[in-house]
């Protein structure tokens, strides 16, 4: 257990009970709570907290892996275009809402979103086969070209999503889509936890497998290959790992940005700064960040709850600006 994992693990064990007690109805453990306290805890707050931890852990680990892979502290897992593809799948499910039998309707959104993420991964794998520079394959574009392919995928998915919104079948579907795209954890149940948790756990495990290979990239692609790293295998691990962590998160909570970008920066000063030392602590720190942010949006005195995705972007965008300033001063 590294120092960073201990710090963020301890923080998480403090945050979980706090998050369970906070909300529109405050539950004080030392006094008699409201009559439905057990229901609020077991059916509303506990699944919501678990979901926040799951999604945050996935985004944190994916961010650490992505920054290691691109050798760039400003990289975000969104760069692979998997989140927009998952969102596109989800938006498509709103379109299909009318034709899906009611029994499956509840599953349509997460399943379609996962299908979108899977399609994104498959397209990336197809592109990667043509761009990764392997000894056997000869010349290739390498990491930079692959990243541009991810951006292309992201813009395409974004454009199709925008198209789906403008052609929305009904005003009701339109507002549903727009609300859903700004990710949130409101009204989620154990069902979403059951969908996302195993996929995110598997994704983090896959990223952990890639960790030492990411360390080798510290000295560049040629040096990494000379140390025995196989670019195709590394890329496959990353596409699967990021696809599972990010895709599962979008499938149950919509788009939640900036977590993957911000979290590794909170973790890095506590580690030796190599990507392998960041993945697990970033998962823990991501869980802390999303859990804390979701608890705060829940207790803010607003008429309608501030969407978690919007709140995190409001924090994340200025943080990104601060990173840029630090980078300009050569402190990053």
């Amino acid at each position: 257990m590294t120092r960073a994992s201990l710090v963020f693990g301890a923080l998480l064990t403090v945050l979980v009970p706090l998050s369970l007690l906070a909300g529109r109805v405050w539950i004080a453990p030392w006094a008699d709570g409201p009559a439905n306290a057990a229901l609020i805890l077991g059916e509303l707050r506990l699944p919501r907290a678990m979901l926040a931890i799951t999604i945050g852990a996935g985004l944190g680990a994916a961010g650490a892996a992505m920054q290691g892979y691109l050798r760039n502290p400003l990289a975000d897992p969104g760069l692979f275009g998997i989140a927009p593809m998952a969102a596109l799948g989800a938006v498509a499910s709103f379109w299909l809402g009318a034709v899906i039998p009611p029994a499956f309707a509840a599953w349509a959104l997460p399943v379609m979103a996962l299908a979108g993420a899977g399609l994104g991964m498959a397209l990336l794998a197809l592109i990667a086969g043509r761009t990764s520079s392997d000894a056997a394959g000869g010349a290739g574009g390498g990491i930079a070209l692959f990243t541009l392919a991810g951006l292309m995928l992201a813009s395409l998915a974004g454009a199709l999503t925008a198209l789906a919104i403008t052609l929305a079948p009904s005003p009701f579907a339109l507002s549903e889509i727009v609300l859903w795209l700004n990710g949130a954890l409101t009204d989620r149940s154990w069902r979403e936890v059951a969908i996302a948790a195993p996929l995110v756990a598997a994704g983090i495990a896959v990223l952990a497998l890639a960790a030492r290979n990411l360390d080798a990239l510290t000295l560049g692609e040629d040096a990494a290959r000379s140390m025995g790293v196989e670019p195709r295998r590394l890329l496959a691990l990353l596409v699967v790992g990021i696809g599972l962590t990010v895709g599962a998160g979008v499938a149950v909570a919509g788009i939640i940005g900036f977590v993957g970008l911000v979290v590794p920066h909170l973790v890095r000063p506590l580690t030796n700064r190599l990507p392998s030392s960041l993945i697990v602590p970033s998962a823990l720190a991501g869980a802390c960040l999303v859990l804390a942010a979701d608890s705060i949006v829940r207790i803010l005195p607003m008429v309608t709850e501030l969407r978690l995705g919007i709140a995190l972007s409001l924090i994340g965008a200025p943080f990104f600006g601060w990173l840029l300033l630090r980078m300009r001063r050569g402190q990053l």
Binding site: R71, N72, R212, D215, A216, L217, T218, L219, G220, D222, A223, M227, G228, V229, N272, R273, L274, P275
Partner: peptide, 18 residues
């Protein structure tokens, strides 16, 4: 090569064991 992360000397040398 440019070194992507500002690691300590011993951590960088230890990469040789990969």
């Amino acid at each position: 090569p440019d070194i992507a992360w500002d690691v300590a000397v011993e951590a960088l040398v230890a990469l040789g064991r990969l």
